[in-house]
Amino acid sequence: MGFDLQDLRAAVAGHGRVARVVIAAIRGSSPREVGAAMLVWKTGQSGTIGGGTLEFEAAQAARSASRHGLSHHALGPDLGQCCGGAVTLLTETYDAETVAVLDPEVIARPVSGPADMPMAIRRVLATARSQGVTPAPQLVDGWMIEPVHQPARPLWIWGAGHVGRALVQVLAPMPDLAITWVDTAPNRFPGDVPSNVTAVPAAKPAELVRHAPAHAEHLILTYSHTLDLDLCHRLLGHDFAFAGLIGSKTKWARFRSRLGALDHPPDRIADITCPIGDPTLGKHPQMIAVGVAAALMQPARATLTKKDLRA
């Protein structure tokens, strides 16, 4: 996770001046990791640095402008939390002017150190550029450095019906997913599509398959079996990391036969997973979404696997 510049820009656009509170350093046990952040404005907040008393007091201080810059908190003695460690928080205030000049890749700024960039920070940035390695969020010599968050996993959701909407509600907050949501017309989508989800109305959705990245993951759950089949057909002729299809075992048996008739070999057809979801959770759209999302976000996996998602 890094500096979520998109979220900050959206918050500033909606609320004006916004305070950002980020965990800059930890010692011992902490409810969140370095780089975890929340945004705070006069009437609300988003994100989390771990909840509890630490978050409550940090939000109150950010709102009242009584705490900016670095602050140090012993979680047990100072706040009565069970975590036995200590955290250093950095609180900064942003508005439209200050957000506009932030670096789109790595944000490094002095918070308690010299105005001139220290050599240690220069080395971190030089290593990142020369080796293509994203630097970890860290507080070094009075400077805070954070990479700008870039979602790394493209996920294409085909269909904006009940299950598609439930999936987007569950998955949109996940920071690593770049979601493209496709259906046949603008009125197929709800009026409140999350700002970090790209909704794409297309009269012929299957024509968009060729534009999907080769490492994208796909969830197919449209209102039309004909369209589902066409999407499966197109995806089998296109590289993908995972393709999952909603439906029964009977539906998948018919699809396998029809895809075979379209000259797709059995081993290639087997690369599509159907059904998806956890059958023990039931068939309610939200339950399907929870089952699929749980498998999708397994931390031990870079991508979905048939074993994890097959019902």
Rank of each mutant, 00 (worst) to 15 (best):
L5K: 13
R9Y: 00
G14M: 07
A24W: 01
S30V: 06
P31M: 08
M38A: 07
M38K: 08
K42Y: 03
T48P: 14
G52L: 09
L54S: 11
A58P: 14
A59E: 13
A59D: 01
A59Y: 04
A61Q: 15
R63N: 11
L70W: 05
S71A: 15
G76A: 15
G80S: 08
Q81K: 10
Q81H: 12
G85A: 11
A86E: 15
D95T: 10
A100I: 07
V101T: 15
A108M: 10
V111H: 06
M117R: 14
M119A: 12
R123K: 14
T127Q: 14
G132M: 09
T134Y: 05
P135G: 14
P151A: 04
P154S: 10
P154I: 00
W156S: 05
G159E: 13
A160L: 10
G164Q: 06
A166L: 02
V168D: 01
Q169L: 06
T180N: 07
D183V: 13
T184V: 15
A185W: 09
P186Y: 05
P190R: 11
N196F: 02
A202S: 15
P205K: 12
E207C: 02
L208E: 05
V209R: 13
A214H: 11
A214N: 14
T222F: 04
T226Q: 04
H233A: 04
A241S: 14
S248T: 14
R254S: 12
S257F: 09
L259T: 09
L262E: 09
D267S: 12
D271H: 05
I276L: 14
P279A: 02
G282D: 02
P285T: 07
P285W: 09
A295H: 05
T303A: 03
K307N: 13
K307V: 11
L309E: 14
